[in-house]
């Protein structure tokens, strides 16, 4: 179990992380979300023990995180962090040995992951000779090689194409099934909510949303109703509880303040012709985020 207990990190008057408090249990996927500069990377550095919090503490199975237990953790930073002059094999051997792994075990796991990511033929190639996508695969392999109990991934999906994203998601799900803890950051909220159970959304170091995603959505009362029917938009806008109507190409989206107004919208739509769709949806994470701090829809 990983516990981040009331962590605050301050540089003089500047507060990089403001009283962050969350925990992750084995088998949980935790999302740390926020805009660029929100404090996600700083939080990861605190979790990894690279930065000492000004207040609070990080506990890993009741113990502090340090170099005595860091071999059980896999850490991938946001930017490409490879040694390009090394071959794939040399790099993974290097990282594996830094995790105190014996060489034969590293090579065995290296072969497994090379096959998994379909880059077996690049084993003895220099990293700088690989394409960006394959370099990203190698980078993703580095925190996996020690079969960690806790996987800390900073923006693992940044710049990935959909096929590779699915591949990475599959690995994360596999780790989850094995009872491992995964904490990752992303600014692609729509993507995160599809497989994350718990989230913390940071903005300028402060927590603006926190908890179980389902609960967060429930607590956020506002709903979206997607309608396909011959409706009059002006009438919809005039209904009680409706605060916004968006005319998308595939449907009309009606934003309502809470579920108590669904009935009124439904009653109106029922009176219209050609009804093909009436879906009541909870707000997406990005909508919740936008509502809390503002920003572009779907991309914070």
């Amino acid at each position: 179990m990983l516990e981040v207990k009331d962590v605050q990190l301050r540089y003089g008057d500047f507060i990089a992380v403001h009283h962050l408090d969350f925990s992750i249990r084995p088998g949980e996927i935790f999302g740390l979300l926020g805009t660029n500069g929100a404090g996600k990377t700083t939080t990861f550095r605190v979790i990894m023990g690279l930065l000492e919090p000004t207040e609070g503490e990080v506990r890993y199975y009741g113990d502090s995180v340090g170099y005595h237990n860091v071999d059980e953790i896999g850490y991938m930073i946001e930017e490409r962090s490879l040694l390009p002059k090394m071959t794939v094999k040399e790099f993974i051997l290097y990282i594996g040995q830094l995790k105190s792994m014996p060489k034969p075990l590293i090579l065995e796991r290296l072969d497994y992951w090379l096959e998994y990511f379909d880059i077996v033929s690049y084993k003895d190639k220099k990293i700088k000779e690989l394409s960006k996508g394959n370099q990203q695969k190698v980078q993703f392999m580095s925190p996996l090689i020690n079969d960690p109990k806790l996987l800390v991934l900073d923006e693992p999906f940044a710049g990935l194409d959909p096929i590779n994203t699915d591949l990475f998601v599959k690995v994360i799900r596999e780790f989850q099934k094995q009872g491992k803890m995964i904490v990752f950051s992303s600014h692609q909220l729509d993507h995160v909510e599809s497989f994350c159970e718990k989230v913390v959304v940071l903005e300028k170091g402060e927590v603006i949303i926190q908890g179980d995603i389902k609960k967060v959505k429930e607590d956020f009362k506002k709903l979206t109703i997607s309608i396909n029917a011959d409706v009059d938009v002006e009438i919809l806008q005039g209904l009680d509880g409706v605060y916004r109507v968006i005319e998308d190409t595939d449907a009309i989206r009606v934003k309502i303040k809470s579920d108590e107004y669904v009935r009124d919208v439904f009653d109106y739509v029922k009176s219209c012709d050609n009804i093909r769709k009436f879906d009541v949806e909870q707000a997406s994470l990005s909508e919740i985020f936008v509502a809390k701090v503002g920003g572009a829809r779907g991309q914070v």
Binding site: G49, I77, R80, S81, L83, K85, I95, L98, S142
Partner: peptide
Amino acid sequence: IEEKSSKAIETIISSVP
């Protein structure tokens, strides 16, 4: 500087002080 400029340093420093 090779390790630092390639950002690999953070991965290394996360494993050794």
